[in-house]
Design a protein around this nucleic acid. Structure first.
Length: 680
DNA sequence: AGCACGCCGACT
DNA sequence: GTCGGCGTGCTC
């Protein structure tokens, strides 16, 4: 572990000194180098060093001394680049220690833009960007909003605090935290706003520009190299004042960060599931603490973890209980599918059809939500019952009948949603050779669109999924078409649940409200509640009353009852008690260990060895090994362990002691997931 | 992550 | 007989 950063303030390293350089590579630790003649170096400096036969750019981390001086090579040069600030360095160390990732792998996330750091790739100076103007007046705030905004403004400049800003959909949370943003800008410091699915937030960007007269800097995977380089440098130099980004923006080298906002803090996409596995919301709180700055967690349906922190007095809570501008929350109605069964090849019940008919007749818009991409989730052979499966994963192939951009090309393809495998529908059953024997089972959004087209031939419909949206522009286009009422009925996956605002949308139908409840992981109920509440909240955000209709086969389920009653507090209180009783997070700790490799026997052998050496203790339980639910993924066989401990157990050192005894053959991978959210 | 070294198939 | 596949191992 490398946590030596904090004690060297502005210590200078002089020629002949040994120093530790962190390289943005998944190495076990820092590498030692010598300060060369005429060099003066300090922690945080970007330096070019020799590594093997080649060169690499790294960051001076601390004093060296782990390796004999005669093995050390001199630093080639110090790069003319703003040094990586201390809070960023401490954050990298902290994340590495917490996630058990190599520190260099974490640094790599902070140095993702080589061309911004290395002067060798030619680059022109970026043109200056217009700055957000905090002096512009904001929208008029309601009394509730004004109280919350004043409290958030007071938090700015007051050191580390965590504030939950909770408010129903449409209550104007964004305008409230914009006031805190204005306060930070007035003080000349920087702001980071984390959003899930940044590429789909054109409406957020428009609101920001309307409030501050200039766009924020964006940070996400769809950026061009040039935009990425310009923004990275502007953040490092302090010229970029507001950055809105996906989770990786947390690792930008902010020169003087003054506030972090995590919008939709409950959103599961803040959990990074590959590479360095971390939860951006939790790490954002750590980043705020290390920077001694406030952080606001914003949500209509805060996570159970955040609610628990509020109850324990660790976080403060600001609440916006009503919709802004007098809009009413939608009515919410369950449709008991045991009574309102549908005809075969049909997924819309009569009450939902009636509601859609009424909305369309009134010139309003409707939305159908089904969290399943493609045409049908399963294709089977009518002759022998064979199910078409992915050759590389333990998963059914999903049939897709639309072209990649939603065009209705007639060719049917089968796709694996886990590995990207794709093939045409075979001419005959690979098992029994029967021809033309395939039957599509169950609905995806494409098939739902087919039913809608048959039932509402005059309605203008569109399907919104990651398959029909190729990038931020396509998403914005579709949202615009919806806002301009060029679409009557929008069909979509959870992409449509995100914070879009459609004034004419009055009816939301959830085709399969039970979908998220299967599988029974510890957050299934919570997640389903949050998702369905968010989807329902799309309805009736302006002058018109909204109605949400949820088709369910288990209307007596606690989630469904909570949604109809609107009593979120009681639902979360019950969930919290369940978690407390079971010693589950946030009252206990979980870590997952996943062994994977191309050969099942080798994977099992390593898993057995891990099981033999599993940690024991009063407050420690180890479950496994078991085959992962996705037993084979991308051709790799997978076995899982789950480590469950009391809150007081230092789970990282337990894991380290466990794993240090084992040297896995290089064809096998051992993945640690601290605080797992996915149990696949 | 690169970039080596290292043993087994199709070519000038 | 070589050129070259990418499997494993190291870089201060």
């Amino acid at each position: 572990m490398h946590t030596a950063t904090a004690n060297c303030q502005a210590a200078e390293f002089l020629p002949g000194d040994r120093l530790a350089v962190l390289l943005p590579l998944p190495l076990a630790g820092v590498y030692d180098y010598l300060v060369g003649n005429g060099q003066r170096l300090a922690a945080g400096d970007f330096v070019r060093v020799q590594l093997g036969r080649g060169q690499a750019i790294g960051v001076v981390w601390s004093a060296g001394g782990t390796i004999e001086a005669d093995k050390c090579r001199p630093v080639i040069e110090r790069l003319d680049q703003v040094p990586l600030p201390l809070p960023s360095r401490r954050f990298i160390d902290w994340v590495a220690a917490y996630t058990l990732a190599a520190p260099g792998a974490v640094l790599r996330m902070a140095m993702s833009v080589r061309s911004a750091i290395d002067p060798k790739p030619r680059q022109r100076r970026a043109a200056p960007c217009p700055l957000p103007d905090w002096r512009r007046p904001g929208l008029a705030l309601s009394a509730d909003q004004a109280v919350a905004a004043a409290a958030l403004r007071r938090a700015v400049g007051g050191g580390f605090t965590v504030t939950l800003l909770e408010g129903v959909t449409g209550s104007g949370k964004t305008e409230v935290y914009f006031e805190a943003v204005a306060e930070v800008l007035a003080r000349g410091r920087q702001v980071l706003v984390l959003l899930p699915e940044i590429s789909l937030s054109a409406q957020w960007l428009a609101r920001f520009a309307a409030r501050f007269g200039a766009p924020p800097r964006e940070w996400h995977s769809d950026l061009t190299d040039k935009a990425r380089r310009d923004t990275w440098r502007a953040v490092a130099e302090g010229a970029a004042k507001v950055v809105v980004g996906a989770r990786s923006a947390l690792f930008l080298p902010f020169r003087d960060l003054g506030l972090i906002v995590v919008d939709e803090e409950h959103d599961a996409s803040f959990k990074q599931e590959d590479g360095v596995i971390y939860h951006a919301r939790d790490m954002a709180v750590v980043r705020a603490r290390l920077g001694a700055i406030p952080i606001a967690l914003v949500s209509a349906t805060p996570s159970l973890e955040t609610r628990t922190n509020v109850e324990a007095g660790r976080y403060r809570r600001l609440h916006l209980p009503t919709r802004h501008g007098g809009a009413k929350l939608p009515s919410l109605q369950l449709i008991d599918m045991r009574r309102h069964g549908t005809a075969r090849q049909s997924w819309l019940s009569q009450p939902l059809i009636d509601a859609l008919t009424d909305a369309l007749a009134a010139g309003e818009q409707a939305m159908l939500f089904l969290n399943r991409r493609g045409y049908a989730p399963l294709t089977l052979c009518r002759a022998c019952g064979h199910r078409l499966k992915c050759p590389h994963c333990t998963a059914w192939l999903v049939s897709h009948r639309s072209g990649p951009l939603g065009g209705g090309s007639a060719t049917e393809r089968l796709r694996c949603h886990h590995c990207g495998y794709s093939s045409p529908l075979p001419a005959a059953c690979p098992e029994c050779r029967a021809a033309d024997s395939f039957a599509a089972c169950g609905p995806g959004v494409e098939r739902l669109a087919e039913e809608v087209a048959a039932r509402f031939p005059d309605a203008r419909t569109a399907v919104m999924t990651s398959d029909t949206i190729s990038g931020p522009r396509a998403a914005a286009d579709l949202v615009d078409r919806m806002v301009r009422h060029e679409i009557d009925l929008l069909i979509g996956t959870q992409i449509v649940a995100k914070g879009h605002h459609f004034p004419l949308l009055t009816v939301v139908g959830v085709v399969d409200a039970d979908l998220g409840l299967a599988g029974g992981d510890l957050r299934a109920a919570e997640r389903t509640y949050q998702l369905l509440w968010q989807v329902a909240g799309r309805a009736g955000r302006a002058a018109h009353a909204g109605h949400a209709l949820l088709q369910t086969y288990q209307p007596e389920d606690k989630v469904m009852e909570a949604l109809v009653s609107g009593d979120a507090d009681r639902f979360f209180a019950a969930e919290t008690e369940d978690r407390r009783a079971a010693g589950m997070p946030p009252f206990g700790r979980l870590a997952a260990l996943i062994v994977s490799g191309p050969e099942a026997t080798a994977v099992d052998r390593l898993a057995a060895e891990l099981a033999r050496r599993a940690p024991r203790g009063a407050d420690i339980e180890v479950f496994g090994p078991v085959a992962a639910p996705l037993a084979v993924l991308r051709g790799r066989h997978r076995r899982r362990f789950l480590l469950k401990t009391a809150r007081t157990v230092p789970v990282q050192s337990v894991l380290r002691r466990w794993l240090d005894q084992i040297r896995p053959p290089s064809s096998l991978r051992l993945q640690v997931d601290i605080d797992p959210y996915s149990f696949l």
